[in-house]
């Protein structure tokens, strides 16, 4: 093994930082902007140290003006730059939704193909940290509704490290959703880990009895559920979607064609969610392969409550995933 490819320990947070750093070194058009990315070191400490290394031109602290700085990112991309815009939390991205939907996602089309927007927007998503109803939602599925943008949801260290560069090379706007519970995730990664492709879902665990389809913050819980199921004699396959738009329908259908059963795990609210879209695709493409109705484990349809026990009850949990899988396997009790 060469020194370069030797394994190294890292965290999800550090992997993203390394990716941003690499991008800044590699392409002088790249810059990072967002609230408290500089002096403060990033609200989740992702960009810590970057201001000292790259200076305030390229690590730009912005005022609390989500609509303006996201819009400015779109403009800067039009002007030839390669901005990485950080929004603290998905709930705050709603202040910039107009810019994302009405400008970033549409200008290429409205201009008849004249102007593309090579912009990357990163933000934190998800619950589980008792942050209540204005800081905890999972709206990436909503964003996946919008043609014209790509939606990435890194769930592993490799994807945290690698998706950013691929996103920056994309000619169109890419949104990256980092689940807040993942920043401290620690593990080993190849010393030469780098860009990853973003067009395909990944098989994280092969199995033959049921397909557990998930992404982002619920991948870990889903893998745990697969282990519990294995102890119970159920072989579960785990698919990590990685990219919610465009959705890799092929991998989903191949898996379901093999297992004939599917459970979708999604931290978004059930109604009108990405899990609903996946269900529809399975039904459209593999209806006759199914041995049981598709099941879903989603967040309860409430704004996120603060109290720990209520928040836990509102979010998808391992026990619920196991129960849903057992149900589609026809196991009861």
């Amino acid at each position: 093994m060469s020194a370069k490819s030797a394994k190294m320990r890292t965290t999800y947070r550090e992997a993203i930082r390394a990716a941003i750093r690499e991008a800044l070194l590699r392409d002088e058009r790249v810059f990072l902007m967002g609230e408290d990315v500089g002096r403060y070191g990033g609200c989740f400490a992702v960009s810590k140290g970057l201001l000292a290394e790259f200076g305030s031109e390229r690590i730009r602290d912005t005022p609390l003006s989500e609509s303006a700085f996201v819009g400015a990112g779109i403009g800067a991309a039009l002007g030839g730059m390669r901005p990485i815009v950080e929004i603290m939390t998905v709930n705050f991205s709603l202040l910039a939704l107009d810019q994302i939907l009405n400008n970033a996602a549409t200008i290429l089309h409205m201009s008849g193909g004249l102007f593309n927007i090579p912009l990357v927007i990163r933000m934190t998503t998800g619950g589980g940290r008792q942050l209540g109803a204005q800081h905890s939602h999972s709206l990436e599925g909503w964003y996946a509704h919008i043609p014209g943008i790509k939606v990435l949801t890194p769930a592993t260290l490799e994807d945290a490290r690698g998706m950013l560069w691929t996103a920056l090379e994309d000619p169109d706007p890419v949104l990256i959703f980092e689940h807040g519970s993942l920043y401290n995730m620690e593990g080993e990664i190849g010393g030469d880990a780098g860009a990853v492709e973003i067009s395909q879902a990944a098989l994280r665990r092969p199995g033959s009895g049921v397909s557990l389809i998930t992404y982002g913050g619920t991948l870990g819980k889903t893998l745990q559920a697969a282990e519990v199921l294995e102890a119970d004699g159920i072989s579960a396959e785990v698919i990590d979607l990685r990219t919610l738009r465009p959705l890799d329908t092929r991998t989903i259908i191949d898996s379901v064609t093999k297992t004939h059963r599917a459970v979708i795990i999604d931290e978004g609210w059930r109604s009108g969610s990405i899990s609903a879209e996946i269900t529809a695709r399975i039904v459209e493409n593999a209806f006759y392969e199914l041995d049981a109705p598709v099941a879903r484990v989603c967040s309860a349809e409430v704004p996120m409550p603060y109290a720990k026990h209520l928040e836990e009850a509102a979010l998808p949990q391992v026990t619920a995933i196991v129960a849903a899988a057992r149900q589609v396997m026809g196991r009861h009790g």
Binding site: Q130, G132, A133, Q134, H135, P305, Y306, A307, L310
Partner: peptide, 8 residues
């Protein structure tokens, strides 16, 4: 009722 917490 514990739904809001410190911020709400």
């Amino acid at each position: 009722r514990g739904r809001g917490g410190s911020m709400h």
